[in-house]
Amino acid sequence: MDSGYVNARIRGMYSRLLDKKSLSNLILKPDISSLITALEETSYHEDLERALVGKSGLGGIEEALRLNLIRTIEKISEFLQGEKGERYILIFSSRWDIHNLKTILRGKRIKVPTMQIRENLVPAGEFDVSLLSELLKQPDVKSVIDLLATWEVPYALPLTQAFPDYTAHGDLFILENALDRFYYERALSLVGGKSVEEGKIREIIGTEIDLINIKSLLMMFRDHVDPEDALPMLLDGGKVFNQKKLKMLLNLGSIASLIEYLEETPYRFLSDLRSSEGDTVKISTYQHLLDEYLIRHAVRLYRGDPLSVTVVIGYLWAKYTEIMNLRIIARCKNALIPPEDMEAEMVYV
């Protein structure tokens, strides 16, 4: 199948995303039930109908948003099946595999009841329902990893490697970091080729890695983490920061000097915030800017070459952002937060 078909479908789907005006209309709805009524007139009505059977109000909306995301990813990977574009979807969708796997590991470690863990899984990635329920049946962390190895799931590799370290220290973040690291390494290796579209996707992943490193650095600087402990928390393969530069960044030691340094990189937007708000800025405010930057860049892929598959990645990011925005609206409506505060958390693409 050629890209014309995919491109046309994605564009059809993109045109159905909510624009800024309809989002503002949703913000102005007085309460949750009128928000639901308004959403029923959008592409979410099918998911809302399904979700509102089991849950009502806010829970129903959130469930519907998740269902919609899962459905969208399924739909796109269906018509990309057997093409190289499928790999790019995989990069996006395996985020939820990582989420699911982490949730299961965390839950199994403190013996959370299986039903509760299941409620927190999002089967949007590669893991199908049967693998997830097999994993849920395992009694502890060790057997979860063993099962992954038996099923030849790629994530078994980093987990098995990190497991001895985990048993020695008992810190779960050792396993989690191994997983996250593996995710980005795998993502980069999936787009290791020389073609233009692979280059573009590689650039987005590199940007994401940079932004994650900046976030981690900000958090660690604020809590005065020892640079030696901090280095393993940083990811290699960033677009701007390589291993050597990261070490240099670590030695800066404070949020102020980090942000000052960033002025010479593409991430100088952080210093604007700092100069207007001062030193009291919360890390989450910085992260909002970082997220916004990443989303803007990823969605830009959609507007790029119309005949390449990068359009799909751009669309998925746009969709993800829309779902995030809707969730913010629903949550804030529920808690009676005024619209202005709501918009501060939202990202418009």
Partner: peptide, 16 residues
């Protein structure tokens, strides 16, 4: 606690 002691991995968890 500080960020390293909360049990979750730093990379995949948002600052929020």
């Amino acid at each position: 606690l500080n960020v390293m002691q909360r049990g979750y991995g730093l990379i995949g968890t948002s600052s929020r």
